[in-house]
Design a binder for these strands. Structure first.
Lengths: 159, 159
DNA sequence: TATTGTTATACTCTATAACTATA
DNA sequence: TATAGTTATAGAGTATAACAATA
């Protein structure tokens, strides 16, 4: 009986699914929201500039933290060292980033964006901010600012 | 000159990296926050109950939307039809979900959680809410509620 | 002996597309 | 002809672990 009713409901449903059980879970809402933000990224930056979103993030972090090491990036992005090697490799091959050996500890590398990389990441960031402003229209600027701050707080809860 | 100073700064830095450029990007902050929420998920639910986070989400959505179809799930989670087949397969193999052929349209399936599935998803949700409450301590309950609502708004910006 | 970074390899998840069976 | 779902295959991304070089 309940099933018959549910079946009818689902068959005609057009909007989003019911998620009462999941409503209060930050993780679930985060994943759903990320579907929207990834679409914005690939639409406004990823496809036009041929950048995977991890590549963009690595590039932006190196620009903001010149001389940072691969180990630092790996920690920040919660990926393995081998992984960072691959992402940095791709950016180096495109001449967006350069590696420089440390003088004080020869195991260590320091990373810098090239002029080309700086131009690209600056353009990408501008387009991305613009894309988010245009496409995340359900949020007012004030709400976006609050959201960013709350997400920042969540990020501090790592380990 | 600037480089020399930066190199020294990075070598001694202990905390998080500088992200001024990325600070206002919802997408970046979302990805950073997700590192924390995924850790909470796998710590409190994923590893103990042997559930991938997509499996948990699919299970919870079927529980909340009895008789829903694979096509509906695929749309909700923004994955392909073939993908949903695989995830539902896994849940069916573990007897957490069952498929039922539609009577009105024999191409269509309706999905239901089994008693076993309902028990598991109920326990998982309780543990996950508990885990988030305990581990996302930088957020007050009120802030978590605001965050969830704002993320919900972002999710409405899809397509 | 511990650490930085690289490489090789396997695994997970996803996307594409061809297929079936129904409508 | 279009749609729901399945299957097969390839690709992207990640993790594991063995390795070289340096501390």
């Amino acid at each position: 009986m309940a099933r018959k009713k549910d079946e009818g409901k689902d068959a005609t449903a057009e909007g989003r699914m019911d998620e009462a059980m999941l409503h209060d879970l930050v993780g679930y809402q985060l994943a759903q929201a990320q579907i929207a933000t990834l679409a914005v990224f690939y639409g406004s930056v990823g496809r036009p500039l041929e950048l995977r979103h991890v590549e963009y993030t690595v590039l932006a972090l190196i620009k903001e933290n010149p001389a940072c090491t691969p180990a630092r990036l790996a920690k920040e992005l919660a990926v393995t060292a081998g992984n960072i090697t691959m992402w940095v490799d791709r950016l180096v091959e495109r001449e967006l980033v350069r590696r420089e050996a440390s003088e004080s500890d020869r195991r260590v590398q320091h990373l810098y964006v090239t002029a080309k990389g700086e131009t690209l990441v600056t353009a990408a960031t501008r387009q991305l901010l613009d894309g988010e402003r245009k496409r995340l229209i359900a949020l007012s600027p004030a709400e976006r600012a609050i959201l960013v701050e709350l997400l920042h707080k969540v990020a501090t809860c790592r380990d």
